[in-house]
């Protein structure tokens, strides 16, 4: 296990180096001048040039890259133009809403999917179980933004049960925070749980017909117990990768939902950085998301090993 972790950590460094380098040059290739974004259309050419110098954006590109890379190695990702703060501090300010939503929605989606699937597998003829199966197809087909608008209209605007938008830090005011989080999390859970149900159901049905479960049934275990205790661990493997990728995707890309629900998360931060050509924040943010992807993949692989002893052995 330790070997796996060490190998992955070495890979992580290599991946981050390659991704960071690619990102630097791709981002610099985007048309649009940060100096123009900052000073507007009426700035004098000499003012623009002076600002480019101040921002470290003048001179040959390779020298800019080496300078940036050298500072990153020392943990200095530079200053954000729009926030006038160190890039890492800005990322820290915006990670909480995104992580809160990603963790809660992923956990809830996973649990709901497991419960539905296990119940479905142990009660294949039950009408409600079959209806839930069909609903998962619908849940998967609904676009997030459409669902978000619908829920806002029904629950926030008409029933006035919840606010239409906003975000409150859970440590500052937990009740207000939960009220603002319910709708965006509900939107994500509906879509994610539906996809997990579909994938997990296939695995569960396959496992439930396996001969190795006969002994469990003979021992007198209920069908629910058989499904939960014996079939589920074997059916979980394919879904772990999907959960991991979904989680990483949520961290990096719920821009539309953040916009609809006015959540100051990483997606909004990155969008603002693109619109303002805040190169250092964009590079830092993208590198951070890449880092999260790699870490989540590592955790997923480790979870594989925990769930399936064969992986550990191999």
């Amino acid at each position: 296990m330790l070997g796996i972790i060490l190998r992955r950590l070495v890979n992580l460094v290599i991946i981050l180096f390659v991704v960071g380098t690619l990102l630097f040059f791709i981002i610099r290739a985007i048309p649009g001048d940060p100096a123009v974004a900052l000073l507007g259309s009426t700035a004098k050419p000499e003012e623009l040039e002076a600002l480019r110098r101040d921002l470290g954006l003048s001179g040959p590109l390779y020298l800019q890259y080496l300078g940036w890379f050298g500072r990153v190695l020392h943990g200095d990702f530079g200053m954000s133009i729009i926030y006038d703060k160190p890039v890492l501090e800005v990322i820290g300010d915006h990670i909480a809403p995104t992580l809160t939503i990603a963790i809660i929605s992923t956990t809830l989606s996973f649990l709901i999917a497991v419960l539905i699937t296990v119940w479905n597998a142990s009660n294949p003829r039950n009408l409600i179980a079959r209806a839930l199966n069909q609903l998962s197809q619908i849940g998967l087909a609904l676009p997030d933004f459409w669902l978000a608008v619908l829920l806002v209209y029904l629950i926030a605007l008409n029933l006035r049960w919840l606010p239409t938008s906003g975000y409150t830090d859970i440590w500052v005011d937990p009740v207000a925070s939960i009220r603002t989080l319910i709708l965006p999390i509900a939107v994500l859970v509906i879509g994610q749980a539906a996809s997990y149900v579909i994938v997990l159901r296939e695995g569960m049905l396959g496992q439930m017909s396996q001969l190795y479960l006969r002994t469990a049934r003979v021992k007198g275990l209920s069908e629910f117990g058989v499904a939960m205790k014996h079939a589920l661990p074997n059916a979980l493997l394919p879904i772990l990768t999907i959960v991991g990728l979904n989680f990483a995707g949520l961290v990096g890309g719920i821009v539309i939902l953040e916009n609809i629900f006015v959540i100051p998360g990483l997606g909004s931060m990155m969008l603002g950085a693109i619109n303002s050509r805040d190169f250092l924040l964009l590079q830092g943010g993208a590198l951070f998301v890449a880092f999260l992807f790699v870490v989540v993949n590592l955790i997923t692989d480790l979870t594989y090993a925990l769930v399936d002893p064969k992986v550990r052995v191999s």
């Binding site: 608008v149 806002v152 926030a156 605007l157 006035r160 606010p163 239409t164 938008s165 906003g166 916009n259 609809i260 629900f261 006015v262």
Partner: peptide
């Protein structure tokens, strides 16, 4: 910025 969020927040007193 979102036009719907602007309108909805106004209608619900946010």
């Amino acid at each position: 910025a979102d036009p719907d969020a602007v309108k909805n927040g106004l209608l619900t007193g946010q």
